[in-house]
């Protein structure tokens, strides 16, 4: 019975590669899809197809926005639309800036200084709505970060009655804002005599984002070493001094991330801005909406304005990406 069959002459290329590995037999994937050449090809084709379609679905709209902004007004009206712009032009951006200079009342200044006469048919003050949004977003961000951080410190380091209930109320309050409370919020803001003020939005956005900040910062404080606080106490810091001079500087990154979260929410929020402000005080979302609805034959201008107002968001994203999942789920999911 002295046969000399080679155990490694099976059809699997995988087995050949692992000839020296005693566990090779166990490592085989044990399915047609993974262990045969045809299966491997099928797998590669399916994965390639799915990836391509997913990426197109995800990225094409973004590409389309950029390309549309770079087309001239004539090219926008072509049927069928051109996938690559034939004559790239910055006309859209120019019209946005001209219209906002004119609507903002700077046309005279520009004419005196540069000798260029501006007359624009579009009257939306993009720079004006950006300034309004900056005011609201920074205000809301500061309120949320300051109040949220103070609260989260205590919620993290002390035990007291009702703590879990409080945390649950804060988490649940993240779920409601926006559409579910726009009508009573309108009534409330009118009762407080704050209708058409940016203060109303600052307070509401502050209330919407501070629970976020509480959860995010609580995650930070939970991991903060006790020994540092002990040391500062031995150096005779009061609890307020410890918080301000020792902990806040060390929490800098988390604080910046919290601020950016609150800022972005305020920058993007449509419902309250639309219902609680009048046209001339509009922030970016409702301002852009009037732009979209009023000039939707001039899509290059709309796309250019969209890109301009999206820039702060993209810059913010680059910074907070690391914190994104924690912020979204209140720190529930850690990588």
């Amino acid at each position: 019975m002295a046969t000399t069959t080679d155990p490694d002459t099976g059809p699997s290329t995988d087995a050949d590669a692992n000839a020296g590995d005693p566990t090779a037999e166990f490592r085989k994937n044990q399915s047609w899809l993974f262990d045969t050449t045809a299966g491997t090809y099928l797998r590669k084709i399916v994965v390639g197809f799915v990836s391509t379609v997913s990426l197109l679905y995800l990225l094409f709209p973004l590409y389309w926005m950029v390309v549309t902004a770079l087309k001239s007004t004539q090219e926008i009206q072509q049927i069928p639309p051109t996938v690559f712009p034939e004559n790239p032009s910055l006309e859209g951006f120019r019209l946005v800036i001209e219209s906002s200079l004119e609507t903002g009342g700077y046309a005279g200044v520009v004419e005196n200084v540069f000798g260029v006469t501006i007359s624009s048919a579009i009257n939306v003050d993009v720079i004006g709505i950006i300034l309004n949004s900056l005011k609201v977003s920074i205000g809301a961000g500061v309120i949320a970060v300051v109040l949220g951080t103070i609260a989260s410190y205590v919620l993290s380091r002390r035990e007291f009655r009702g703590k879990n209930a409080l945390m649950s109320v804060l988490l649940a309050s993240l779920m409601f804002p926006g559409t579910a409370i726009m009508v009573p919020e309108w009534e409330l803001i009118n009762t407080l005599d704050l209708y058409d003020t940016h203060l109303s939005l600052i307070l509401i956005y502050g209330a919407m984002t501070s629970p976020f900040v509480v959860w995010l910062m609580k995650g930070f404080f939970d991991e903060f070493p006790d020994s540092i606080i002990e040391a500062s106490r031995i150096d005779q810091c009061s609890s307020v001094e410890t918080f301000w001079y020792v902990i806040v500087p060390m929490a800098r990154n988390s604080l910046i991330a919290s601020f950016i979260f609150a800022f972005l929410l305020a920058w993007n929020e449509l419902v309250f801005a639309l219902t609680l402000l009048d046209n001339q005080n509009y922030t970016v979302p409702p301002g852009l909406l009037t732009f979209v609805q009023g000039f939707n034959t001039q899509w290059n201008v709309v796309a250019a304005a969209s890109i301009i107002v999206s820039l702060p968001v993209l810059l913010g994203l680059a910074y907070i990406q690391r914190y994104f999942v924690q912020g979204l789920t209140g720190g529930a999911i850690k990588g």
């Binding site: 995800l58 709209p61 973004l62 993007n268 852009l288 969209s306 999206s310 994203l317 680059a318 990406q321």
Partner: peptide, 22 residues
């Protein structure tokens, strides 16, 4: 993943108006 996240962080109105145009 930062690129993948762009549709989520873009201002709501911007994303919606791209689709309206498309």
């Amino acid at each position: 993943s930062a690129i993948v996240l762009i549709p989520w962080v873009l201002p709501r109105v911007v994303g919606a108006s791209i689709w309206q145009f498309m």
